[in-house]
Amino acid sequence: MTKPEQRSPSVALFVTCLVDVMRPSIAFAAVSLLERAGCQVSVPESQTCCGQPGYNAGHEKNARLIAQQVIETFEGYDYVVAPSGSCAGTLKKHYPEMFAGNAAWRGRAEDLSSRTWELTSFLTDQMNFTPSGVRFNHTVSYHDSCSGLRELGVKDQPRKLLAAVDGTEIAESDLAESCCGFGGLFCVKYPDISAAMVDHKIGDVMAGEADVVLGGDLGCLMNLAGRLTRKNLPTKVWHVAEVLAGMTDKIDPITGPSDDEAAK
């Protein structure tokens, strides 16, 4: 018999709905990193969305139905890993809350919760992984996404991983932990406030040395990138997994191709 620690752990990737549609490279980067860290990676086919948009909008019944589907889909894996603090936070923190009054499902939700990780914290805290042979010649400002930071304690993990990337300097922003104003539906319901919030962050990044913003949540990164390009600002935005997987020379940043490249 193999002891669990002797075989490679089975990891199910929770792709997240946003990465699936908007930026598949993040999921490919996550798979690559997990495999390099020694995991057996699967991508369960019946996954869709974690249900957070509905849950945060007060549609609890629908959110519970989606959660049940996620719980069933991801049963049997050693770990469930998402390249997003907010989706991982939903599985880990909010699913057990959703089933507070239902002992059977509460148990299953807690079991999933105990196996769920955000990507960078899984790589460091659980797998003790350090990337090697990766180069990214930029000064970066790291945006700590709210859910990852406050629900899951993701703060040092991505910085630890980035410290092993050649050519990368981190220029910490005073506003690293401030909300970017995305907030799911918040940014479309209150676009003026959301834009003012993201401008605070962008202003702080622009005042420093960084030429790149990195983060671990695509929602925030699309918000930052979309505002940067709308204002014709040169700062580029990537997901931290893309940098760690050494993928940045093969794909455009979230801010899109430079105008020169676009003209080609």
Partner: peptide, 9 residues
């Protein structure tokens, strides 16, 4: 109204 939407990759 306030930002570009990055297109799917």
């Amino acid at each position: 109204s306030k930002r570009d939407m990055p297109a799917p990759q």
